[in-house]
Design a protein around this nucleic acid. Structure first.
Lengths: 113, 113
DNA sequence: CCTATATTAAACCAATAAGTTAATTAACTT
DNA sequence: AAGTTAATTAACTTATTGGTTTAATATAGG
């Protein structure tokens, strides 16, 4: 699989996105990250492995803890991919805006053509 | 599942992203979309259903054709989600930049502290 | 050395995903 | 009416995912 697919499928899980959101506020150990969730520590550990394989997080080692931190690169790659479509949805928006203007000018009694 | 998860998992497949890229250039029928791929039409039809359920495309009907077109909303939602992390990776970049500046000032013989 | 804590590994299970082929529906063409 | 083209549905297979429980590994602290 290509890296973008791996990244996107890692992101396609609410638990994993919540973990990333938590890590955006700073490093945390595996058990700290697991604490808010209603699932086993083992399950969270697996989610972390998925995130790690996607390069979205990295793990250090401090005694028996594995402090995790957010890595920006894959997210930036998603952003780059989206870039090609930004054009598209701006165009789309422009069209809507012109239509809105048209309605504005036409007034209530002229639904336009 | 939440809509963002549905969107991201729809996007986490290279075939489906290729379909979206194709649709960014304009509408196309199911068979037109299937043509470049080395898989059955049925398989592509299923991919389209995944994209449709995620709201990434919509299908019209013209005689026996179902012209598909790209829908911007879910992509915009992904962009919005990324927004929270843009801050993060800019910070990260800033740090790198300051470090680069530091190296610049220090020169070759002063690796700095 | 023993024990508690933090994390990972192994084995398993149910549900979902991605593909196949064959059959069906729908609309145009002759 | 019969045949062709476009697309979907159904039934099936195989692999992956997300979770479980139990067992193993590693480190710190008495």
């Amino acid at each position: 699989m290509d890296t973008l697919s791996i990244t996107l499928s890692a992101l396609a899980d609410p638990t994993r996105r919540a973990i990333l959101a938590r890590l955006a506020t700073g490093e945390a150990s595996v058990s700290e990250l697991a604490e808010p969730f209603d699932m086993s520590l083992v399950a969270v550990s697996k989610h972390l492995k998925v995130l790690e394989k996607a390069g979205l997080i990295s793990k250090g080692r401090e005694a028996q803890w594995r402090p995790c931190r957010l890595e920006p690169k894959p997210l930036r790659q998603v952003d780059d991919w989206l870039e090609s479509y930004r054009q598209f949805w701006n165009d789309n928006l422009d069209r809507l805006e012109s239509y809105a203007e048209l309605l504005q000018k036409g007034g209530k009694n002229d639904p336009g053509n």
